[in-house]
């Protein structure tokens, strides 16, 4: 029954699996797809990704090599035998994948990914700059507390697209010097930033890919995210949660500049009601 060469279709399929696996791995390994990283916790996120790339890459390559090998080898004919496995043999076979994947996956979550997760969601470092970002269809509004360092009261009823986009309450003394900008975020390099997140209408997601920041903004909830930009430059702010027909163009600019320049810039900004 056994023939020396497998049929052409088996060789083709085996070759397909091998080439598929090799090209896939090459595509991940040879090109650095990730955008530059510009935040303190960013390398932690990237490390997690690279760890999973390596682990899954090995499993993927080995799995496909075996699959291709079996297809090629066992298409040559032969006389299979009916030999059911004893439960004991079955369980001992299972032990390998169970152990390997439990360890590999939980190491990713806890050991490699854990520290970065805690950085993002842990306690806020002292001396952080607090700003507010408000999402609305299809625009980003940014508020700085102004010279008094306090955010003034806002109310939905006061919101007006042109005259008062975040709904500042004029009567609140703390509100008068609040700085409101459209679509642009200035941040000091090297200083921790806490962003209060609000939405005026639907879900949005505050995403700055280069800073490895992504946090949904849920209307009705005061959201929060924190990070430390460590590399001066100009980055992009994107909305990462479908928010309507203009979702794709809900972009913004993030300017990270050295602290003195940032301070100077901030002093030059007039309050919304000034």
């Amino acid at each position: 029954m056994e023939t020396a060469r497998p049929p052409a279709s088996a060789s083709a399929l085996a070759a397909f699996f091998v080439v598929l696996a090799a090209l896939t791995a090459l595509g991940f390994a040879a090109i650095s797809w990730l955008p530059v990283v510009a935040s303190e916790h960013g390398p932690g996120v990237d490390r997690t990704i690279v760890y999973i790339l390596v682990v899954t890459g090995v499993l993927f390559l080995v799995g496909h090599a075996v699959l291709a090998g079996f297809v090629w080898r066992y298409s040559r004919g032969g006389t299979p035998e009916y030999r059911p496995l004893s439960p004991k043999v079955e369980w001992s076979w299972a032990l390998l994948p169970v152990l390997a994947l439990t360890v590999a996956s939980e190491v990713g979550v806890l050991v490699i990914g854990g520290p970065a997760w805690s950085q993002i969601y842990g306690e806020t470092p002292a001396g952080a700059l607090e700003i507010e970002v408000v999402g609305k269809q299809f625009e980003w509004l940014v508020r700085y507390p102004g010279k008094d360092g306090r955010f003034g009261r806002t109310a939905a009823e006061l919101v007006h697209d042109v005259r008062n986009p975040v709904g500042l309450d004029k009567k609140d003394p703390a509100a008068s010097d609040d700085v409101v900008l459209r679509g642009a975020l200035h941040l000091p390099e090297g200083r921790p930033v806490v962003v209060r997140l609000r939405s005026l209408d639907v879900l949005h997601s505050f995403a700055i890919p280069e800073l490895r920041v992504k946090q949904d903004i849920v209307p009705g909830h005061l959201g929060r995210t924190q990070f430390r930009p460590v590399r001066a430059g100009s980055y992009e702010l994107a909305c990462a949660e479908l928010c309507g027909l203009g979702h794709y163009r809900m972009s913004g600019k993030v300017v990270v500049e050295p602290a003195p320049e940032f301070e100077r810039w901030l002093r030059e900004q007039a309050g919304w009601f000034e």
Partner: peptide, 20 residues
């Protein structure tokens, strides 16, 4: 294989932060 392993990137919260 591809789908299952790809799930690890998304199931791990820290990397999902980027991939979400």
């Amino acid at each position: 294989g591809i789908g299952g392993l790809g799930g690890l990137y998304l199931g791990t919260a820290t990397s999902d932060l980027y991939f979400h």
